[in-house]
């Protein structure tokens, strides 16, 4: 699994252009992304590099956002952490264990709600308890608790098509929480929502994150959203997808979009993104 050429190449890259301080403390390395690369074979016989030499560590309970233009590989990186795609180079470990597939403590919320249309809200959430060993009654009871957590206990018997986009994403979050995941991976979860619903759900997510103490990795197009939510913002650049810079968001919560520091950071990230 360890590809020494790749490791050496990435180490060289790091020394030439450091993007962030690296930590060696295992406590701060809850998720360790080591020299991860992903290449696809193109039809012409050449290969396309979607991700190259991605090195990043994420601490337990940290809220980290991936920001970048389309094609910078942020969703691919999230999928590799989720175990839904394989890295072609390098390795990711969660709490020291290499990621070999889904179901190692990663809960995923997708951009499009990925709810099962044939199940009601409560049954969709209960689906998340399938592998928990609980019986049906307990699964439903726990699912109801989670729906209450996301404020949807009244919509328990609705089918996804009967719910608004915001409600669907709330149910998606509740379903992901059913796994009691250590890590919540979110791929532009609020991207398709209107502005008001989006802000509402951002607050909701922070509340849940603070109450449940999860590690969150959040992919977004929106610098604003990343600044509202994250402890750190990882800026990715395309061709090939790589980490360009990591920003610490040293703002106390709840945050305000009107704070001078918020705007200064916004400008800084925007500059980095557009150069």
């Amino acid at each position: 699994m360890l590809d020494h050429d790749n490791l050496a190449r990435c180490a060289l890259r790091r020394s030439e252009a450091p993007v962030a301080k690296r930590t060696t403390s295992p406590f701060l390395q809850f998720i360790a992304i080591n020299s991860v690369g992903k290449t696809f074979a193109a039809r012409t016989g050449s290969s396309i590099s979607v991700l190259d030499c991605v090195d990043l560590t994420i601490a337990e309970n940290e809220f980290v956002s991936f920001v970048g233009r389309s094609g910078c590989g942020k969703t691919t990186l999230l999928n590799i952490i989720a175990g839904l795609e394989d890295a072609t180079q390098g390795q990711i470990t969660i709490a020291g264990r290499p990621v070999t597939g889904p179901g190692q403590g990663q809960g995923v919320v997708f951009q499009q709600h990925a709810l099962f249309p044939w199940l009601t809200a409560v049954d969709n959430v209960a689906f998340g308890f399938r592998k928990s060993g609980l019986n049906k009654t307990d699964r439903r009871q726990k699912a109801m608790d989670l729906l209450t957590l996301v404020g949807l206990e009244a919509a328990a018997s609705k089918y996804p098509r009967e719910m608004s986009g915001g409600m669907q994403q709330r149910v998606s979050i509740a379903r992901a929480l059913a796994l009691d995941p250590q890590i919540l991976l979110m791929d532009e979860p609020f991207g398709a929502l209107d502005e008001l619903t989006r802000i509402e759900l951002q607050h909701e997510l922070l509340r849940i994150w603070e109450a449940q103490r999860k590690t969150v990795v959040f992919v977004t197009h929106s610098i604003n959203e990343a600044l509202m939510l994250s402890d750190r913002i990882v800026l990715l650049a395309p061709n090939p997808g790589r980490i360009k810079r990591v920003f610490d968001v040293d703002l106390p919560r709840p945050r305000s979009r009107t704070e001078p520091r918020f705007n200064a950071l916004y400008e800084e990230i925007w500059d980095e993104l557009s150069t």
């Binding site: 179901g103 995923v108 499009q112 990925a114 399938r130 796994l179």
Partner: peptide
């Protein structure tokens, strides 16, 4: 819809169970 299959995989479903459920 492939996103439904992905979602199901995150809950540890595969093979026959994925197919049936």
């Amino acid at each position: 819809d492939p996103v439904l299959v992905r979602a199901a995989r995150t809950f540890g479903l595969h093979g026959g169970e994925l197919f049936r459920r």
